[in-house]
Design a binder for these strands. Structure first.
Lengths: 305, 305
DNA sequence: CGAAAAGGTTGAGTTTGTCTCATGTTGGTG
DNA sequence: CACCAACATGAGACAAACTCAACCTTTTCG
């Protein structure tokens, strides 16, 4: 019924002040506009503007449609721009979210580097998200989610970034500090410090304590890594943490990092993206950059920054 | 380039879970949709969805267009609904603004009555407007403005509602209370109470005091009519006011209403509307109702409510 | 005052686009 | 292996939208 062409014509007519002028702007003949309006006004059942005046005057119906044009045409242009960016591949959008709470410090250098290489790509990082990130990814609201447990979802692929060891941070003089590795039972009398998230998103519960059916004496949470290290160092608890996040503190002798289980507890971080985004050159580059950065961070004799 | 049809098809495709199904909903053949998408994807330079899966899976580009569809299709529907209301004439919109500060109490019974007669018409009354109402009327943001000074504006017509006399309210024992009528000089030593609006919108200045080049000893403002009457009754000032607004107070002996000038100061209230709205039946009826109500109010032995 | 210019309408003819119909292709399934 | 379901493709039908040319109407200006 109503077409975008009509909205564009109305819009042009407001800018111009006659049909002739508007036709020029639209690269059409004046006759075309006349026909167009005749038919549209017939369909609408009333005139849309008064032709005799200069500039033309719109009727209430015309004004209502202009209002619609003002609301929709910009949206349309924005979408078309986004699409052509997607097609071009040198620019686009990269809205991220991270599930892994201690990934900030690792992600930042990646982002910094990426921003230099792809200044045209619109970067955004949703951190404290109140929504489920994977559905948002599938819906198109997000473009990349960093997660450690890949769930099978149509259209979503997981690109492994790196594997790390989750370790236990204990105070230097802690009774566990001299053990070769930690077993679940060791945590029975301990206070465990975690990030304030659900248990089933913490590997130390899902893959270490719960399989052995062990519950620590106490569990407390903290938002900040430094705060957690503070608590651990002063002997008020222990905490599980990626060894690369721990490195900064253990290498300076603040705390000791202990292996969890005889063979260690390893986890892999994945970048979840929509399958078709694998083709976007900037996405390929981001993933490579992320892997590179993680290697230098992991082997890092240098402190994590 | 991009057409509404495409957005509708995409939308239908998301609800359905195959091209065949979507085609059914749109009352088209599957072939039509296939052609449509082929051409659209060609224009966009990339696929919009994956066909092999059930339900279909959208690519990033497809999701972006769906987002556009979600944003624009509702706007479109709303506009079409408004237009068909305008055409039908039994329903529509009537957003009003009043320039005349003391018109509320007069307008209310009109509105009450109108609402009963035209329940389908969406009524709104913008009172404390920070914007200029007449341009808003021309733009289509408003549909009716009650004003006492009609300025010539393309496409705007003024329908006279009623003529009233502006009078001066004074305390019963006031020195002016016994005069047959008030002359500008009488106000020289007085405190004049007005509504808090610009002077050039107050008839007592523009058409009574300023022509005689008289300035009252003091001018103070008040928002509420009752408050102004209170001040007048206790002898702390005088105020100009439509006689119908004054009637409630003067008829009960709280204040006295005096004529301004020998022949009185008369003003006419107009309803400003866009010319083409004169044809809308509900608008015609509103204007008639307004005139009727104003008559009963004006002759009103009954108090204004 | 009359002619030219400018804005708009209308009808005919042409182009373009969009649908249907018929048929071909592909991937999964009893 | 044949069949089915989903989708693709080509040809033709039809409608929509544009251009061209002629015509009407109002304004402008010598």
């Amino acid at each position: 019924m109503l077409e975008i062409r009509h909205l564009k014509t109305l819009h042009a007519l407001r800018e111009a002040d006659s049909l002739v002028d508007a036709a020029d702007r639209l690269h059409l003949t004046q006759s075309a506009l006349s026909h167009q309006f005749k038919e549209l006004e017939e369909r609408m059942g009333m005139p849309l503007f008064v032709r005799k005046t200069k500039p033309v005057r719109f009727t209430s119906a015309g004004l209502r449609l202009l209002q619609l044009a003002d609301a929709t045409l910009p949206l349309l242009r924005a979408a078309e721009r986004d699409i052509s960016r997607l097609a071009g591949g040198t620019a686009g959008r990269l809205h991220m979210a991270i599930e892994c709470h201690s990934c900030f410090q690792w992600l930042m250098p990646t982002i910094d580097q990426f921003r230099d290489a792809w200044p045209e790509v619109e970067l955004d990082l949703a951190s404290g998200f109140s929504f489920a990130p994977l559905p948002a990814l599938a819906r198109g609201d997000l473009d990349l989610v960093v997660t450690s447990d890949p769930v099978d979802l149509a259209g979503i692929t997981y690109v492994p970034l790196f594997t790390y060891e989750a370790m236990l941070a204990v105070a230097n003089q802690h009774r566990l500090a001299s053990k070769a590795y930690i077993v679940p039972e060791d945590l029975l009398p301990e206070t465990l410090i975690t990030y304030p998230v659900e248990r089933d998103r913490l590997d130390i519960f899902t893959r270490f304590l719960e399989p052995a059916d062990i519950e620590p004496a106490q569990v407390r949470t903290s938002e900040l890594t430094v705060m957690m290290m503070q608590l651990v160092a002063s002997g008020r608890g222990v905490c599980g943490m990626p060894h690369w996040a721990l490195h900064e503190y253990s290498s300076r002798g603040y705390v000791k990092a202990k292996r969890l289980g005889e063979k260690g507890l390893f986890a892999t971080l994945y970048a979840a993206i929509r399958a078709d985004m694998l083709d976007a050159p900037y996405m390929r580059d981001f993933l490579l950059t992320a892997k590179d950065t993680s290697f230098s961070t992991l082997d890092g004799v240098s402190a994590v920054r």
